[in-house]
Every structure is written in structure tokens, then in C-alpha cells.
Nucleic acid binder design. Structure first.
Lengths: 227, 227
DNA sequence: GTCTATAACACGATAGAC
DNA sequence: GTCTATCGTGTTATAGAC
């Protein structure tokens, strides 16, 4: 379930790959994305530049690998925190706040990461075909967040909700990248205040008279979805 | 009212600057952003690379200059189209569709542009201090779009509305960058269908009982606004 | 076949002479 | 205001070691 392209054939190869990746991520944290050159990564990892490129097709692919490991970690950390929690707003808040928390060490250099992800032609774009497995994994996780709650979801909405929540999550990350507040206080405030709002919005669709509006909005979303 | 850094002192300087810029934009359209190297721009413009850098501090600054001229052009083209139109939804649709229309020749390479704009540490980010004059110009334009309409805006909302509409505009651009539909049909559909929705949303705030909700949302926005 | 290293390329950007 | 020469970068070609 990984989006990695390179697949080392041997144990030693896997070790070298891991060494290069962890070295790169450490240097990204310490010195930022731009300041961390491929030459420095290779030197610090004790390998040659050519060897680094044997395992990672480009510098951007190091970010892709980082993101893959982040998804795995997110699931591991968030699941225990969700255990026993049935309120959907709380489950949403925990899920997204955990993700932000895990990314925190990289926030100062998020711009460097985000830059490449924003390019729709880049394989790193969250909407790219290369990112499809990772994206589907995340959407599936949001489906679990919903199904583990006691919220009753209108069945018209059921199919689309996980993907919409993932989109909401992307929006939070977009805000996080630009957030300059101390300890990212404003991002957490955003999460704390919008998560209940999102759930309230879902509830609104149960009201009589809003059925038509919901159908209109869902139809719009389906029309606009990339094909 | 320009965000340009370099300001040629002489007529000849202004001519050279213009020559480099128009050459660069033509090459961007023809061959894309990445494929258009500074060396090629300089050669095609008949100047040296060093000279190009005398007028534009970086390749990104060429985009900044492009965006400045786009704002001017947007105003020129949109204003006549808005003349006599009083319906706010229509005015919104015209304003944003015109902008999309003007950017259309560059759509194939929008990723290259957008990439740098997405980096919050880049001066090209629409949220950066360097972009403040351009951003304020655009927000002021949206204020005109509103004031020229016959819509009655709740006075609590009046101050924030232009900036919120600008944000809505940014959202449309975000969609546009990723839009792969023929002739950007989906982007225009997005505009056609969300513009009335936005106006309907403004109208909703007039309903009794929603006053508290509006105040809550505005308070949230004020809290989250970068400082 | 799997992995590693060295040398070189084109790019964005800069220094310094004129 | 304009040029040439050069730097450090991401990336690649290619030869060779395990």
C-alpha cells in the first residue's frame, strides 16, 4: 500500500534506503528543505549522490516517502486516541489534530514541501494518480472515523462524506502551512471550532426542506469531481 | 500601486524591462514555465542573462510582474462588462469568469506558476507582504462589485465581505489550476453555480435566528485572520 | 542482477568589469 | 545599464564493484 516507486531487492538495499530517508528527514527538520542539498544528504548518510538517486528518483520523492510514513504513523497514533470516543465532532477533532501534531516538527519548512505538492503536474500533488493509493488510504480512514461514531448520517450523503471530510482536512493543512501563530495555536483553534460546525452542517441536512439543497450541492460536487 | 521592486529610471530602461517581460510571457505560453530558461528568455530578447536579472530579481519575479499586469487588465475588461448589471450574483460571475478567461492562455503552465505562489515564504504568495498592494487592489475591486449591485448587505458583514469574496475567488483559482476538463468547462460551471449560492448565503444571514450564527462565524474568521 | 561511485550537464543566480 | 565568467544546485550518464 505504498506509493514508493523503488523497491530494493535485498535487505542491505532496504537498509541503505532507510538510512538515506531518515538522514534526509533529519536534515529537513534541522536546516529546511532548500538548504538540505542532495550532496549533503548523501555525505551525511555516508553514500554517494548517485546512490541516493538510485533509491529516490528525485528530491521530491523523499517528500513522497515522508508522506507515506506519516500516513502510517497517523493511523497508529490516532486509533488508540479514538478508542471509546463516539461523538463525531470529537473524533474529527482528534483525527485532524493528531495529524497536525505529527507534522509540527516540519512546520517551519512546510512551505518547501507544500510548494511541490501544489503543482498539479507533480506526482506529489494530493490529486495526482501517483498519490491515489495514499489518498484512498486516508479517505478510508475518514470512513472509519465516521462509522465508529454514533452519528446518524443521511444515506444520500454516506458515500461522499469520507471524501468530503478528507477535503476539509486538506483545507486545514492549507491553513496550517500559512499559520504563523505561536505553537500553531490558530490552526488548533480552527480545528476545535470547525469540527463541530461540520457535524452541525451534516445534521442540518436532516431538516425538512433542506433535502433539495443537499441534493443540489451533492450534484454540484459530482459534476465538479475530476474525471 | 505596483508591487514591482525594480523601477527603471530611464525610458530606455523601461523599454528593456518591457521587452524582457513580454518575451518571457510569450515563451511561457509557448513552451511552459520550466522549459523557458532564463538563458532562452535573454537570448530571445536580445539581452544578456545578467541584464535580465538587473530588471527581475528572479525568475519568480517575472510571474509577479505578469500578475500585476493581469490585475490591471482584469479591471479594464471587467468594468465595461459590469456596467448596468445590478444583480450581485451576475456581477460576481462576470468578475471571476473574466479573470479566468484572461488567464486561460496560461492554463497549461499554471502549475509552474502556482507552485511558487503556494510557498508561503515566497514573495509571490498571495498572502505575503510583498503581495499586499496587489491583494488590496483586488479586494477593493470586489468592494466595487458589491457596492455597484442592488444587494442589501447586513452591515455586520459589510466590512468583511470584499475580503471573503476575494478568498472565494482564490478558491476558484485553486480549482482552475487543477481543472483538466475541455475548455475549462468545469471551472465555468463552478462559477455559474457557486456565485448564486454565495449570494443566497449572504441573504440567509438576514433571516431571524441566524444572527447568532453569523456573529459566531465572523468572530471565528477574525480570530483566524493572520496577524 | 543489485548496488555504488565519479564526472559531467544545464539550470537559476551572482560577482565584477566596463 | 550591460556584459562575461563563474558558482552551487538538482539531476543524469556511465563505468564498475559486489
Amino acid at each position: 500500500m505504498s506509493t514508493d516507486v523503488s523497491q530494493p531487492r535485498s535487505v542491505k538495499g532496504e537498509q541503505t534506503r532507510e538510512l538515506i530517508l531518515t538522514t534526509a528527514l533529519r536534515l529537513f527538520r534541522e536546516n529546511g528543505y532548500d538548504a538540505t542539498t542532495m550532496r549533503v544528504i548523501a555525505r551525511e548518510a555516508g553514500v554517494s549522490v548517485g546512490n541516493a538517486y538510485y533509491y529516490f528518483a528525485s528530491k521530491e520523492h523523499l517528500i513522497q516517502a515522508f508522506y507515506d510514513s506519516l500516513i502510517r504513523q497517523h493511523r497508529e497514533v490516532a486509533l488508540p486516541r479514538l478508542a471509546g470516543v463516539r461523538d463525531l465532532a470529537t473524533r474529527l477533532r482528534i483525527t485532524i489534530a493528531t495529524h497536525i501534531e505529527l507534522m509540527q516538527p516540519y512546520h517551519a519548512f512546510a512551505g518547501g514541501f507544500f510548494k511541490t505538492a501544489a503543482d498539479p503536474t507533480s506526482p506529489l500533488s494530493p490529486f495526482s494518480t501517483e498519490s491515489t493509493p495514499a489518498r484512498e488510504e486516508e479517505v478510508a480512514f475518514f470512513a472509519e472515523v465516521v462509522s465508529g461514531s454514533d452519528a446518524r448520517i443521511p444515506k444520500q450523503l454516506l458515500d461522499d462524506l469520507p471524501e468530503l471530510l478528507w477535503l476539509y482536512h486538506m483545507g486545514v493543512i492549507l491553513y496550517w502551512v500559512h499559520d504563523t501563530s505561536e505553537d500553531l495555536a490558530r490552526t488548533y483553534e480552527l480545528i476545535d471550532r470547525t469540527a463541530p460546525l461540520v457535524v452541525k452542517l451534516i445534521g442540518l441536512t436532516r431538516l425538512p426542506g433542506t433535502k433539495g439543497v443537499l441534493e443540489d450541492v451533492l450534484d454540484l460536487i459530482h459534476t465538479l469531481r475530476p474525471r
